[in-house]
Amino acid sequence: TTVHVNGVTYHFPNPEEAKKFVDRVVKEAGLTVEVKGNQWDVE
């Protein structure tokens, strides 16, 4: 699973890890998340 955060790419072994990361980032920074298949874009 690939997560893009403001142009930076993070790779995770599974969607659960990616979701935990995204949830944390979104809570801390108040960002928006767009999910496209296995790819997350966070802005």
Results as ranks from 00 to 15, higher is better:
Arg24Met: 09
Asn14Gln: 02
Thr32Glu: 10
Asn6Lys: 04
Tyr10Glu: 00
Glu43His: 12
Val42Phe: 07
Thr2His: 09
Pro13Thr: 12
Asp41Ala: 10
Lys27Thr: 08
His4Met: 14
Thr9Cys: 15
Ala18His: 01
Pro15Thr: 10
Glu17Val: 03
Ala29Asp: 08
Val42Met: 07
Asn38Arg: 03
Ala18Lys: 01
Val33His: 07
Phe12Ile: 01
Val33Met: 05
Lys36Leu: 15
Pro15Cys: 15
Gly37Ser: 04
Trp40Thr: 07
Val25Pro: 01
Thr32Gln: 10
Glu17Pro: 00
Asp41Arg: 07
Lys27Gln: 08
Lys19Met: 11
Lys20Met: 07
Tyr10Thr: 01
Gly7Met: 02
Val35Lys: 05
Val26Lys: 09
Val3Gln: 00
Glu43Pro: 08
Glu17Leu: 06
Lys19Pro: 00
Val26Ala: 11
Val3Arg: 01
Gly30Lys: 04
Val35Cys: 15
Thr1Met: 08
Asp23Glu: 12
Thr1His: 06
Lys36Ile: 15
Lys36Tyr: 10
Val42His: 09
Gly7Ala: 02
Val22Pro: 00
Val25His: 05
Glu34Leu: 06
Gln39Trp: 14
Gly37Cys: 14
Val26Gly: 07
Lys19Ser: 05
Val5Leu: 11
Ala29Cys: 15
Glu28Phe: 12
Asn6Pro: 01
Trp40Glu: 08
Phe12Val: 00
Ala29Gln: 12
Lys27Ile: 08
Trp40Asp: 08
Thr9Tyr: 11
Val26Pro: 03
Asn14Arg: 01
Val26Glu: 06
Glu43Met: 13
Phe21Ser: 00
Gly7Asp: 02
Trp40Arg: 03
Arg24Ser: 10
Val25Gln: 04
Val22Gly: 01
Pro13Glu: 12
Arg24Trp: 14
Glu43Asn: 12
Val5Asn: 01
Lys20Gln: 09
Phe21Cys: 02
Asn38Asp: 14
Gly7Ile: 04
Trp40Ile: 10
Val8Glu: 05
Thr1Phe: 14
Phe21Ile: 00
Asn14Pro: 00
Asn6Met: 09
Asn14Tyr: 02
Phe21Gln: 00
Asn14Cys: 09
Glu34Cys: 15
Ala18Ser: 01
Glu43Gly: 10
Thr32Arg: 08
Val22Ser: 03
Val25Tyr: 12
Glu17His: 02
Gly37Phe: 13
Asp41Ile: 15
Arg24Val: 05
Pro15Ile: 13
Glu28Trp: 12
Tyr10Phe: 06
Asn38Thr: 06
Gly30Arg: 03
Phe12His: 00
Ala29Glu: 10
Ala29Pro: 07
Asn6Cys: 15
Lys19Cys: 13
Arg24Asp: 05
Lys36Met: 15
Gln39His: 14
Lys27Tyr: 09
Thr9Lys: 09
Gly37Pro: 13
Asn38Glu: 14
Val33Thr: 09
Gln39Pro: 09
Lys36Pro: 13
His11Gln: 04
Thr32Asn: 11
Lys27His: 08
Gln39Ala: 12
Gly37Asn: 10
Asn6Phe: 13
Asn14Gly: 05
Thr2Pro: 02
Glu28Thr: 07
Asn38Gly: 11
Val3Ala: 02
Thr32Phe: 03
Val25Met: 14
Pro15Ala: 13
Val33Phe: 11
Gly7Gln: 02
Val35Asn: 10
Val26Phe: 14
Val5Thr: 02
Thr2Met: 08
Glu16Met: 08
Phe12Cys: 05
Gly30Ala: 07
Pro13Asp: 13
Val5Glu: 01
Asn38His: 06
Arg24Ala: 09
Thr1Gly: 02
Val42Gly: 09
Phe21Asp: 00
Val3Ser: 00
Gly30Pro: 04
Glu43Ala: 11
Lys36Gln: 15
Lys27Phe: 11
Tyr10Leu: 03
Thr1Tyr: 14
Arg24Leu: 09
Val33Ile: 10
Phe12Asp: 00
Glu28Gln: 08
Val8Leu: 07
Gln39Arg: 12
Lys20Asn: 08
Lys36Thr: 15
Asn38Ala: 06
Ala29Met: 14
Thr9Asn: 04
Lys20Arg: 11
Pro15Gln: 11
His4Lys: 13
Thr1Leu: 11
Pro13Val: 08
Gly30Leu: 07
Val26Asn: 09
Glu28Ser: 07
His4Arg: 15
Asp41Met: 14
Val35Met: 08
His4Gly: 03
His11Ile: 08
Glu17Arg: 01
Thr2Gln: 05
Glu17Ser: 06
Lys27Gly: 09
Val3Asn: 00
Ala29Gly: 12
Val3Trp: 02
Asn6Glu: 03
Glu16Thr: 06
Glu34Asp: 11
Phe12Asn: 00
Asn38Trp: 06
Lys20Thr: 05
Val35Ser: 04
Glu28Cys: 15
Gln39Cys: 15
